[in-house]
Design a binder for these strands. Structure first.
Length: 225
DNA sequence: GCGACAG
DNA sequence: ATCTTGTCGC
């Protein structure tokens, strides 16, 4: 169910932190999710030295992984970058991009952390609460937590732990390449999250939904259409 | 007190 | 995140 106060973006860092702690308590982590026919990949980045925020969303069909729809949205950035508060900087643009979609996906993969966050509310979790959809955090680097060696074979993973909890999995998505940091965002379990990421892997490091969103976002010349 | 620190 | 060319390798 929707959570109140998610839409407040004019917060002091202290207020944002307090809000994160409260919202983290609403994250659901069930094993089973509804039947999946559409998977969205989300990538949020910045341009013009951070002045502009750009959100790209690609919807793929499952199980073919064929892209069905894609949108890009740009808007002025409202918040500075503060480690741990990234979602407040990125989500406004992501929501605007989602509003442009005609398809409502059953599963969303987001570039960034889910609950693998100091207060268990990374951008994937925050977005999942807002959209009330199952989300998975697919990060290319670590925010917090520690882990042991990750086996070399594709699909292998090691738990990412923080303050006595398992907050995610460090996944070898491709041989001889730096691993991905996978964590549940909302309405899904870690195991199911890892399953879906592995199932969406092609020949590259990133799963198809995130990879296509990344690629779409970096095509600098085109506007949303 | 000293680092670390998603995008 | 972004600024940026070529280059090594499957």
């Amino acid at each position: 169910m929707p959570v109140a106060a998610l839409h407040d973006w004019n917060l002091t860092p202290e207020e944002a932190i307090a809000l994160q702690k409260r919202l983290a308590g609403s994250i659901e982590r069930q094993d089973r999710i509804d039947p999946v026919r559409h998977i969205a990949g989300v990538d949020i980045g910045f341009e013009e030295g951070g002045e502009m925020t750009r959100a790209a969303v690609v919807v793929l069909s499952w199980p073919t992984l064929a892209p069905l729809e894609q949108v890009v949205h740009r808007e002025p950035t409202r918040m500075p970058y503060v480690p741990g508060l990234l979602s407040f900087r990125e989500i406004p643009a992501a929501l605007a991009a989602f509003a442009l979609l005609t398809t409502r996906p059953e599963l969303v993969m987001v570039d960034g952390q889910g609950i693998a966050h100091p207060r268990r509310l990374g951008v994937a979790s925050h977005l999942g609460l807002w959209l009330d959809l199952p989300t998975i955090g697919v990060a290319k680097s670590r925010l917090c937590g520690s882990y042991g060696e990750v086996p070399e074979a594709k699909g292998e993973w090691t738990p990412l732990r923080h303050r006595g909890e398992t907050i995610g999995g460090v996944l070898r998505s491709r041989l001889a390449v730096k691993p991905l940091y996978i964590s549940l965002g909302h309405r899904i379990s870690l195991e199911t999250s890892l399953d879906w990421v592995v199932r969406c892997l092609g020949r590259t490091k990133l799963p198809e939904p995130t990879r296509l969103a990344d690629r779409l976002a970096s095509r600098r010349d085109e506007k949303s259409r």
